[in-house]
C-alpha cells in the first residue's frame, strides 16, 4: 500500500474572522508523487502550504506529514524542504553565509549538509560569496532551491519555485524535480504555469476560492472530457472502425492522425477495437491540455 506522506484533512482558515482563505480542504500526496497545487490567484494555495508547514494555524482540520499532525516548529519539518513564495535571505550577508546560518540555526553542523549538491543546483559560482542584496531575482530563487536541498529532504513543498527564472533555468528545475522524485522524494508544488505542471506533475489538486474542485492523476484530469489524438498506420481503416464504436461521438482528421471525441469510453477500449481490426496504433494521447481542463474545472465550480 502506498504511503500517504502529505495529508490535508478538512482544513478551514479565515483571516480576521472574515476572509475565508481555505474552506474544508482535503487531499493527500503519496510517496514519490509530484503533485501540482493549482488555482487562480486567491484560491488559497499559499495559505494551504503555510498551514502544512506550521506557519499558519488552521481554524479547523489538520495537516499531517508522514501520518503525524504538523504543529509549529514540529521536528517533522526537518524532513521537509520548503520554498514559500519568494526565496528570502538576510540581504547584507553572502549567499553561502546565509545557507550556513540557516542550516546551523537548526542545531546541525554545516559539514553534515549536502552543501556540494545544493551549490551545484544554485549554480552561482563565485557569486555565492557575494552579498545576497546584489543578486537578481533568479539568483535568489536558485539559492532558495539550494537551501531546500541542503537537508536531503524527503518531501519538497515549493510555492511557485520557478518564479523569476529564465526558460533554461525553468527547464533545469523541472529536470531536477524529476530526478528528486525518481530518487524517492515526494513533491508538492504550486504554480501558475500550467504547462509546467503538466510537464512535471504526476498528480494535481485544483482549488478555487479556498475549496477543492478536483484532484487526481494529471492524465485523468486532462482526459476527463474524452478528447484524444491517435496516430495509426492506416487512417482510413481506423476512421471506419472508430465511427462504428458506440463510445465515439466524432472523428476528425488532424494530420497525420485523427482527433477522436469520446462519450464516456476508455482509451483502452478504443485501442483494443483498432488493434482487433488490424490497425496499428502508433500514438494515443489526450488532446486537451491541462490548461483546458483547469479552465473548465474552475468554470464548473462557479
Amino acid at each position: 500500500m502506498s504511503e500517504r506522506v502529505v495529508e490535508i484533512v478538512g482544513i478551514t482558515k479565515r483571516f480576521g474572522g472574515q476572509v475565508l482563505a481555505v474552506d474544508d480542504l482535503s487531499f493527500t500526496v503519496e510517496r514519490g508523487q509530484i503533485c501540482g497545487l493549482l488555482g487562480p490567484n486567491g484560491a488559497g494555495k499559499t495559505t494551504s502550504l503555510r498551514i502544512l508547514l506550521g506557519l499558519v494555524r488552521a481554524d479547523a482540520g489538520e495537516a499531517r506529514l508522514f501520518g503525524q499532525r504538523v504543529r509549529p516548529g514540529s521536528p517533522l519539518l526537518g524532513r521537509v524542504g520548503a520554498l514559500i513564495e519568494q526565496a528570502a535571505f538576510v540581504p547584507q550577508l553572502s549567499g553561502l553565509r546565509n545557507l550556513r546560518l540557516w542550516w546551523e540555526a537548526g542545531g546541525a553542523r554545516f559539514a553534515d549538509a549536502d552543501v556540494d549538491g545544493a551549490l551545484a543546483v544554485a549554480g552561482l559560482g563565485d557569486a555565492i560569496h557575494r552579498k545576497v542584496k546584489t543578486y537578481s531575482q533568479g539568483m535568489r530563487q536558485r539559492l532558495g532551491l539550494a537551501r531546500v536541498l541542503l537537508g536531503r529532504p524527503e518531501v519538497l513543498v515549493l510555492d511557485e519555485p520557478t518564479n523569476g527564472l529564465d526558460p533554461q533555468e525553468m527547464r533545469e528545475i523541472r529536470l531536477l524535480l524529476h530526478r528528486l522524485a525518481d530518487a524517492g522524494a515526494t513533491i508538492l508544488f504550486s504554480s501558475h504555469v500550467l504547462a509546467e505542471v503538466e510537464q512535471v506533475c504526476t498528480h494535481a489538486v485544483v482549488m478555487d476560492r479556498g475549496r477543492l474542485i478536483a484532484s487526481g492523476a494529471v492524465a485523468e484530469l486532462i482526459g476527463a472530457a474524452g478528447d484524444v489524438y491517435i496516430e495509426v498506420d492506416d487512417v482510413t481503416a481506423a476512421r471506419r472502425v472508430l465511427e462504428q464504436l458506440p463510445a465515439v461521438i466524432g472523428v476528425e482528421s488532424e494530420s497525420p492522425g485523427l482527433a477522436v471525441t469520446l462519450r464516456d469510453g476508455r482509451r483502452s477500449d478504443v485501442v483494443a477495437a483498432l488493434v482487433g481490426a488490424g490497425v496499428g496504433v502508433e500514438t494515443i494521447t489526450a488532446r486537451r491540455r491541462l490548461e483546458d481542463a483547469f479552465v473548465g474545472l474552475v468554470a464548473e465550480s462557479r
Binding site: G73, V90, A105
Partner: peptide, 20 residues
C-alpha cells in the same frame, strides 16, 4: 527585520521552535 526580508518563515520551517 527578519519578517520584512521574508526570512522569518524559513527560520521557522528549518525548523526552529518559536520560543527559541
Amino acid at each position: 527585520g527578519d519578517a520584512s526580508w521574508g526570512n522569518l518563515r524559513y527560520l521557522l520551517v528549518r525548523p526552529v521552535k518559536r520560543a527559541r
